[in-house]
Amino acid sequence: MNVIIVEQLTRRYGRRIGIEQVNLEVPEGVIFGFLGPNGAGKTTMIRVLLGFLRPSAGRARVFGLDCWRAGHRIKEDVGYLPGDLRLYPSMTGTDMLRIFGSVRRRDLLAPGRALAELFVLDLTVAVRKMSRGMRQKLGLILALAHRPRLLILDEPTVSLDPLMRQHLMQQLQELASAGHTVFFSSHNLSEVDRLCDRVAIVRDGRIVADESLDALRAGAKREVTIRWARDVNPRDVNVPEILEIHHRQDRLWQGSLNGPVPVLVRWLDSQPIEDLAIGHPDLDSLFRRYYQQGRSD
């Protein structure tokens, strides 16, 4: 079942395009990464999903309900962390959990305290006295405390230290393994690489890729390093098309592999090599390629 279904969704701000003709489906129980550089349309997409913005065209549905018309019903099962998080300055974490619990008509204090322990946050401190990182933790606690079916996080790891990021990742993985869905926007590739089952890449308001991470990895280049056993003349070596050599220094050649590893290994089997190193798929360069395509177009 798809938790989020977006069809031909367009949202403009006057002449400026927020997102344009976006189609997206997010299945239940996955961690879905929504990637793109600043200003690409990630936050616009999230704001449409939460019913903050009315679509200019197309439609967005969460749990089968229209996001604009039934936003409040959708949010009963949604936890949301805004990108630019602002909380009520005079309230403490406990106050906010109590009030939010009262709004949601469920006790959030007990799960909130457990999360505060995990994230090492003192809930008795007033928001105005909290650092940015502490506020971010409180925002996460408020989004996670009711264990929502769908968690929408806009740049969740901003201001978190590496240890807290690790805790957050664990939480999200636990939620996903229990059947909850996580939709999060980011421009941090390493956390997407570690966490996501599926990724959509947005550029200038349009989706340029929407695939599983494995499919993306399959399409990503790998760094290859070859050390020859003896001096070789490059003109004598018939390098396969899938291997692109960038750098040659004596017997050391470096390049990128844009194809299956076994094809390369079979070719190298007949070559006088001393050593071979094949790196992990380089998602970073893949994303950069997607991002930069728009600028060069």
């Binding site: 903050f52 409040h72 019903r73 009963e76 949301y80 805004p82 998080l85 989004a143």
Partner: peptide
């Protein structure tokens, strides 16, 4: 103006 409406309307309230 103070940006808290995101958190407020993120709750299940119309």
């Amino acid at each position: 103006d103070r940006g808290t409406i995101d958190v407020l309307l993120g709750l299940p309230v119309s």
